[in-house]
Write a protein that binds this DNA or RNA. Structure first.
Length: 284
DNA sequence: AAAGTTAACAACCGCCACAAC
DNA sequence: AGTTGTGGCGGTTGTTAACTT
């Protein structure tokens, strides 16, 4: 036996809502709230099913809904969030105040997806000159992490600020194998000699913990994440460049310096490289 | 100007998770 | 513990306006 349908279809209005219907729904919810969507249309005198009322309210009539064109910042946020969250429109919408999942989904299918597809023809680059990573490119998750902590002290993008939680690293690794500093940043890498787990701490911008044993400790001598006032860059410098190139071969030839369009892209790249997006997903 | 195509967006449908019973 | 009702979610469709041929 199947479930009873959510509403009796016969005799109910379908299709676009009229201004009169909108007004009835708005005034009813203002007076009585919407504790029971199924019962609401009957109580309000609307010839609609509860689902339809809920959808109309949630996607169109709710007072805090922001309508109109998406800003460049919002579009960038959707693209970046979609890289991590996929088609979880409600989760994406939760990061964009005033925007609904339905609206974001529509924008994605009508604008952003096409923009990315146009941007996609990522032929492997052979030159070693500085280049910007395409936003749509799939990111490698070569490096495994079992735990991830990240602090973003000064985010310029309000949508990103709420995405990440601040948390200091408290891990005590058995032995310290590497100490890095770069342009005022205090980066510290420790390795548990028994388990092979690697702990990275960057007190200025982020901390990562427990990357697992499958990465070479020398990697962290060579890879420094850094930022200055105008750029967010991943520097892959000096020795062992060929090995790093192999690690990240999914990206095509690795540039010695990758410059990102925005701080958000920079952070998402770090998350993707460390598998941190898995932890992020778990926390949502 | 008419027909055909595409873009934009509102709305619907079916499924799922979860709370209540 | 199993069943049912409900809200919420993501995929999809329908409609209409805008654009192209």
């Amino acid at each position: 036996m199947g479930r009873a349908p959510c509403c009796e279809k016969t005799g109910l209005n379908r299709g676009p809502w009229t201004p009169e219907e909108d007004q009835i729904l708005i005034s009813f919810i203002h007076k009585h709230g919407h504790s029971n969507w199924r019962a609401l249309p009957k109580q309000a005198g609307l010839l609609r099913c509860g689902k339809s009322c809920r959808l109309r309210w949630m996607n169109y009539l709710k007072p805090d809904i922001k309508r109109g064109n998406f800003t460049k910042e919002e579009e960038d946020a959707i693209i970046s969030l979609h890289q991590i969250l996929g088609n979880r429109w409600s989760a994406i919408a939760a990061k964009l105040p005033g925007r609904t999942d339905n609206e974001i989904k529509n924008v994605w299918h009508t604008h952003l997806k096409k923009r990315l597809e146009d941007y996609q023809p990522a032929k492997p680059k052979t030159s070693n000159k500085k280049a910007t990573k395409p936003k749509s490119q799939s990111l490698p998750t070569k490096l495994n992490s079992t735990k991830h902590e990240l602090e973003l002290a000064d985010s310029s993008n309000p949508y990103f600020e709420s995405l990440l939680s601040a948390s200091p690293s408290t891990s005590d690794a058995v032995s310290s194998v590497t100490l890095m500093s770069h342009e005022g940043h205090n980066n510290e890498a420790k390795m548990d000699k028994n388990s092979g787990d690697i702990n990275i701490a960057d007190q200025d911008c982020c901390s990562f913990e427990n990357f697992g044993a499958d990465i070479d400790e020398s990697f962290w001598n060579e890879a420094l994440y850094c930022q200055d006032e105008s750029n967010y860059a991943l520097n892959l410098e000096v020795t062992g460049f060929d090995e790093i190139q192999q690690e990240f071969q999914q990206l095509g030839p690795v540039e010695k310096e990758m410059v990102f369009d925005s701080e958000m892209d920079f952070w998402f790249d770090i998350l993707a490289r460390t598998g941190g997006e898995q932890d992020l997903l778990a926390g949502l």
